[in-house]
Amino acid sequence: MPRDLDRPRRLHRTDWMALLSGILFIVLGILVLTRSITDPLVLLPVTVVGLGFAGLVSILARVIRGK
């Protein structure tokens, strides 16, 4: 089946919440495995603040996009 070259290609928009949350959990996992963070009382606020930041960026991106 030939591909329609006249039709513009649709790109996916970046899901900033998912992207930043994934990066946060990967970094936190590395920090826990390397024992850079050993206190759960430090890990919990870092997680909450990181997710809050990801949510804020996601909201701002949606407002800037106009959707």
Rank of each mutant, 00 (worst) to 15 (best):
H12T: 09
R10G: 00
D6N: 13
L60R: 03
P8H: 00
L43K: 05
R62I: 05
P40Y: 12
L56R: 07
F53Q: 06
W16T: 00
D4K: 06
T34D: 07
V48Y: 12
R13V: 00
T47A: 15
S58L: 01
G50Y: 13
G22P: 02
R62C: 04
R7S: 09
I59H: 14
R13D: 04
M17Y: 13
S21T: 14
L44V: 15
L19C: 02
H12C: 02
R65V: 01
L24G: 02
V42Y: 13
G29P: 05
L44F: 14
A18C: 06
G52F: 11
L28V: 08
R13M: 01
A54H: 10
P2C: 04
V42K: 04
I37K: 10
G66W: 15
L31Y: 02
S36N: 06
G52T: 13
I30A: 08
S21G: 10
L31W: 10
L28N: 10
F25W: 15
V49R: 02
D39H: 06
L20R: 12
P45Y: 08
G52V: 04
G55H: 13
I64K: 11
V42T: 14
G66E: 06
V48Q: 10
I26Y: 07
S36D: 06
L41M: 08
V46T: 12
I30M: 06
F53W: 11
